[in-house]
């Protein structure tokens, strides 16, 4: 499931999820619908690179290709599907603009 509306988006980790590394793979639970995800190592690398200031293709180029020895085009195509799925559950934020500081949850004043 791709998001056709945004090409090569900026992505950021949602502050509304729970996440922890377990044996090199990220466990994530969406606070929106309590869906539990376990990301493989490639997806974990994308998740960790999702700082809101970097576009998806760049994240793939920096964090996935060198580490996992895959073609950028192929890796980006896979990453788009993964990003769309996590975005649908509110786990990743997607935008055509940089996403300012995806800060962890804070107390509203």
């Amino acid at each position: 499931m791709k998001n056709p509306s945004i090409n090569n988006p900026y992505i950021a980790r949602s502050p509304m999820v729970a996440a922890r590394l377990l044996g090199g793979e990220m466990m994530i639970m969406s606070a929106v619908d309590s869906t539990l995800f376990s990301l493989n190592e490639v997806a974990t690398a994308i998740w960790q690179g999702a700082d809101g200031a970097t576009r998806l293709e760049e994240i793939v180029r920096q964090h996935v290709c060198p580490e996992f020895d895959v073609e950028p085009a192929l890796a980006t195509e896979d990453a788009e599907g993964f990003v769309a799925e996590l975005a649908a559950h509110g786990v990743l934020l997607v935008s055509d603009q940089p996403i300012s500081a995806p800060a962890p949850p804070r107390e509203s004043p």
Binding site: V17, A18, A19, R20, M29, A31, P104, P105, E107
Partner: peptide
């Protein structure tokens, strides 16, 4: 808030 900033499922 501190616990959630550390990303626990609370």
């Amino acid at each position: 808030a501190y616990a959630r900033a550390l990303m626990f499922s609370v």
